[in-house]
Design a binder for these strands. Sequence first.
DNA 1: ATGTCTTACGGAAGACGTAATAATA
DNA 2: TATTATTACGTCTTCCGTAAGACAT
Lengths: 298, 298
Amino acid sequence: MEFKELECFVVLSEELHFARTAERLYLSPGRVSQLVRSLETRIGGRLLERTSRRVRLTTLGERFLADLRPAFDALGQAVVDAKTAAREVTGVLRVGFLATPTGLVTGSVRRFEERNPDCEVELVEIPLSDPFSKLRAHQVDVVFTLLPVEEPDIAAGAELNHVAMRLGLPNYHPLARRSSINAEELASVSLIGLDDPAPRRWREHVAPSHTPSGRPIALAGTVATSQEGVSQVALGRGAMLICTPSAASYVSPDVVFVPVTGLPPSILGLAWLKSSETAVIRAFNEAAEGHSPHMVAA
Amino acid sequence: MEFKELECFVVLSEELHFARTAERLYLSPGRVSQLVRSLETRIGGRLLERTSRRVRLTTLGERFLADLRPAFDALGQAVVDAKTAAREVTGVLRVGFLATPTGLVTGSVRRFEERNPDCEVELVEIPLSDPFSKLRAHQVDVVFTLLPVEEPDIAAGAELNHVAMRLGLPNYHPLARRSSINAEELASVSLIGLDDPAPRRWREHVAPSHTPSGRPIALAGTVATSQEGVSQVALGRGAMLICTPSAASYVSPDVVFVPVTGLPPSILGLAWLKSSETAVIRAFNEAAEGHSPHMVAA
DNA sequence: ATGTCTTACGGAAGACGTAATAATA
DNA sequence: TATTATTACGTCTTCCGTAAGACAT
C-alpha cells in the first residue's frame, strides 16, 4: 500500500487530467500514469477510464474514492496537527525547584508565562538529596539545579545565577553574631549533609569534608531537604551551608544565616532529560536565560 | 509524508519494542529505528522516548497516535474494500441486445443471475443501425452483437451462436409461399437496409448489395431497428433479411419469414469497452460462453 | 496538427540488511 | 553479561524525469 499512489489517485480524481495532476504533485505526467497503473494493479481493477482525450472515474473508482477520501484527509490533518503541536508551546510544564522558589525561579516562570500564555506552569519542589529522580520518573519536565550536571542522560542549559553561600547556625552559637565567616572557620562546626541519592559533588558542596586549606570538617548528619536541614539547625544539631537567596526565606528566631567567604558559589541552571526535550522546554530555557537577574555577583 | 514511517510508528506504539515491530513489518530493527527517527524529524519533535531498555510514547506521540490511528485504519480498510469490490460481482450490469431478446440472450442472463445472485441485470435494446454508441456512452456495459468486431476500442468474446437468415416478405408476395429461398433470388426483391451509423459490414450483412454470384440487389430504404424494418415490410415497402430467432418474435398476419439458403450465417457474441472491462463483465461473458445453445447449426 | 496519455530507458535517490557500537539492567 | 536500541556502510530496489510513441480530436 503506497501512499504516493493513493495521493496520486485522489488528486487525479479531482483534476481528471494527468498533466495538471503531475503539476500539483511535482511529478512528470509519465510518473502519474505509472502510479495510477500500479495502484490499479494492486487493487485488481480499473479505477479510472482514460483515453488520450478524456479521463473519468469508473464505478469502482468512485466507490473507492468515497471510502478513501475522508481517511486520506484525516491522515494528512493528523500529521499537520502533530507538526503544529511539536512547534507549539502549550499544555502544562512542570518545573522543579530546590529548597525555595527564589527570585530566579519565580522570575523565569513569570517571564515564560508572559511570552507563552497558552502554557501553564506547575512548580514542584525537588529534594536537595535527589535532584534528578523526579525528572527521570517524568514527574517534572525541567528542574532548576546546581551546575555543572554530569549525568549522561540529562541536558543542561546555561549558567543562570552565581549565588553566595551562608552558614545557618543556632542563634546562640558563638559565630552567629559575626557579619561573615571565613571558609577555614568551618573546621570548628559540624555540618549537616545530604541523604543518600545525592551526587558526590552536591554532598561536597553542601557539606565539604575539608576546608580549602585541608582541615577536616565534621559531619553532623544528613537530611533530604533544606527545610529539614534548617529544622536540625534550629534544634542545635549542627550548622548548614545554604544559598543566600534560599536562606532569605527561612525566617526563624532560632536560626541565623551568616555569609561565608572563600567558598565557591552555587551555580544554578536548568536541566532536563535529553530524550524528552520539547519545544516547551526550549522555550522555558530561553525565558530563563533571558531573565534579568543574570549573573548576580557572589 | 511517508506511509512506511506512519505504519512503523503505529505498530511500534503497540509493541513498544523495536525487534518485535521489525518482525511484524518484515524489516530489520535498524530500519525501524531509522523510520521512526525520520518521522520524528518530519514532525519536528520526539514521538517515542526510548532507552535500550524501555520504549514509551511521549505526550506528543500519544496525541499524534490518537489522531492518526482511526485515519490509518480507515485507509487500510478502504483499500481492502476496493480489492474485494474489484473481485466481486455485484451491482447492476446493463446488457444490450439487438432486435429481440432471443433465447441466447435470456438464457445467458438466466445462467449469469443464477451464478451471481448479488448482481442485477438490466436489458437494453440496441438499434441495429448503431450497435456501439450506447456502449461508448456508458449506457450499457456489454452488448450482444454481430461478430467479428473490428473497432479498436472494443473487445469481443467468443462466438456464441451461428444463426440462419430469413427473408421477411409481405404475405401477398409471390415468394411468400415458398418453403425456402435461394440467395440468388434476392436479386428480384428490394431490401430494407440500415440507417447511417451502422458499420459497413452490418449494412452489407442485412442488405447485401449483390448476390453471391454478383447480381445486384436493390435497396428499398433504411431503418434504425428491426421492428421498424418489419413495419416497412408489412406496408409493402420492401423485404428484409433478419435472423431466424428474431423473426420468430415478429408474429404478424401481414408478414411472412422465409428461410434463405446460401447466405453466411449471423455470428453472435458479446462485446464491451476494452477500457471498462470489469469482473462483472468477465463473469457475464463466462456465463454466456457456458450457456447451452452453443453453436446452434445455421 | 495539436494536445494528451503511455512506454522505454537510464541515472539518482533512498530503502534495507548486516554488522559493529552504545547503553541499560 | 545479556538484551536492546543506534549507527555506519554497501547493495539493490524503485523512484522519477526525459523523450519518443500512440491515440483522439
